[in-house]
């Protein structure tokens, strides 16, 4: 082990090697399915078949439409809370451990309270009202 080695992390990498293998297996599965499909399927494309489906009538206009900004606000709220989680989870494992206690608990509630204010604000501004 050289000076530039991280101690005690061998198992860490080994664990994720397994994850990688699982992913590879999944990809292999999909590939196999597609392969089988390629062998078995017929292939007779026609114009109609390749047309975008709009309940039987010819498609009108572009398929890629502008979407409502509201989705953006949603996405952002989501990001806020997803990020909130990265603080919540590490804390969750230790807050009741010896050396911590009520103060730690309160702190996290304050933190969540701050986020809740944001939620409150969003609700008040009508972001959460689906029209």
């Amino acid at each position: 082990m050289s000076a530039l080695a991280m101690a005690g992390n061998a198992s860490y990498y080994a664990t994720y090697t397994t994850v990688l293998l699982v992913v590879l297996a999944g990809v292999a599965f999909a590939a196999a399915a597609f392969g089988a499909n390629r062998l078995l399927r017929p292939h007779r494309p026609t114009r109609e078949k390749l047309l975008t489906y709009e309940s039987g009538v010819d498609p009108v206009g572009e398929g890629w439409a502008q979407t409502h900004v509201r989705y953006y606000v949603y996405a952002y709220l989501y990001v806020v809370f997803a990020v909130d989680a990265i603080f919540l989870f590490p804390w969750a494992t230790v807050f009741a451990a010896p050396g911590f206690g009520w103060a730690t608990l309160t702190e996290m509630f304050v933190f969540i309270g701050f986020i809740a204010v944001g939620l409150l604000y969003a609700w008040r501004k009508g972001v959460l009202t689906w029209t």
Partner: peptide, 20 residues
Amino acid sequence: TLFVITIAAAEIGLGLAIVL
């Protein structure tokens, strides 16, 4: 790292809003 993740999220959110 945790804070950088947060910062990145905030930046992306704000950035997209500005781009919008």
